[in-house]
Design a protein around this nucleic acid. Sequence first.
DNA 1: TTACTTAGTGTAAAATATACACACTATATT
DNA 2: AATATAGTGTGTATATTTTACACTAAGTAA
Lengths: 231, 231
Amino acid sequence: METLLPKFDSVFSIDCVIFGFDDGELKILLIERNKEPFKDWWALPGYIVEQDESIDHAAERILYELTGLRDIYMDQFYTFGDVNRHPQGRVITVAYYAMIRLNGNKELRPISNYVSKAVWTSVNDLPKLAFDHEKIFSRGFEKIRNKISYQPIAFELLPEKFTLTQLQQLYEVILSKKLDKRNFRKKMLNYGILKELDEKQKGVSYRAAKLYKFDKRKYSKLFQKELTFGK
Amino acid sequence: METLLPKFDSVFSIDCVIFGFDDGELKILLIERNKEPFKDWWALPGYIVEQDESIDHAAERILYELTGLRDIYMDQFYTFGDVNRHPQGRVITVAYYAMIRLNGNKELRPISNYVSKAVWTSVNDLPKLAFDHEKIFSRGFEKIRNKISYQPIAFELLPEKFTLTQLQQLYEVILSKKLDKRNFRKKMLNYGILKELDEKQKGVSYRAAKLYKFDKRKYSKLFQKELTFGK
DNA sequence: TTACTTAGTGTAAAATATACACACTATATT
DNA sequence: AATATAGTGTGTATATTTTACACTAAGTAA
């Protein structure tokens, strides 16, 4: 590499806002830091981008090293570049988000000793976070709240088979708003992206609900049309 | 500053996709580079972020130095972080966009000798661009195309007083789609964010159209409600 | 006065969104 | 066996929004 570019005493980092849904609660993944600064504080999983890796790659690697989660597809949503966001120098961070299924048991096993543990925490019950991570989280939450209003992304958070009530609860949590059951069902079923299964919920002490699956094929078709303004 | 953070032989940069609308055409601002690499190539206005300035600030400064445009409010839309996007080293760039009024005469007077000139170029007639700037432009265009579908941002591109036909043309250009005049007018007027003026177009060799103004107050109110899902 | 060019307008049909309440069913409890 | 409990599942009328579609009015230029 030539050196026409000025050197720059700064680093890029990645921070991840990973959403999960469990127990009727929307959660995000937090780590407990094991290093200064902010040792023993809670923080979003985040670390420094290596010199020779793309930021997308860095995001995947860092999430894996800090939480043990692999093969999570993330999208970037904002880059935070204020001068004093990190106490030790100039750090610009690209924030990524993802929504994943918790299947009851996504194991969290940090590889790096940079963190002492990783846990799922309800977004309604977040501790104080290191750095400007509260700001980053808020923007990530805003992002999915917006997105869910025009794309049915909620499925990514649910188990493969889910009931309409679960789906509705998830919408309600993300939108912070009660929805009408009949209208919600009508709307969702009208999208035509749900496949009704021949199965019912099990282990509940009341009438069991039908299970549904998300139909990816039809979903992609739906998104050809998108965007208002007919003619 | 302490030095616990690793040094990193890399730079942050900013690239700007600045949209304007003139003559029924959607344009963006390009510079001709006066320095290697890509000397004499066309490129998006972009340069390196200083150590002690926020990226938002850098965006403003860089746009000014490279094109002479001041006080343009920009939003970031994506960060490009592939490893080999710059031939001289690792450069991660935060891309910003803005939509501005051309008022016929936004003067372009580059301050920096890093560029030899700056010009407005129709998006339908772009030359080959330096670095990965074509990719950056595409994503920026996609961004405003999406955005205009749910937010009436088009006003930012028009002169203060405009006709409904001009507004419609702009929508058509951004959406690459013909729209129906009656439906378009109905919809726009229904938003209630246009103020009809007591003035007409001048200097046209046909029936002059009424002029309208964009009503910012009402616009913000409209955006309280936003987001579907009634109850 | 005529020809030309763009402005400006209405309506019916279809699709979508909203508001709203009660009976059904599976299980657990007595 | 009877009952309580808790969540499932459904229909309809109304309002709103979206779509398709074509002609007349106004101003200018010759």
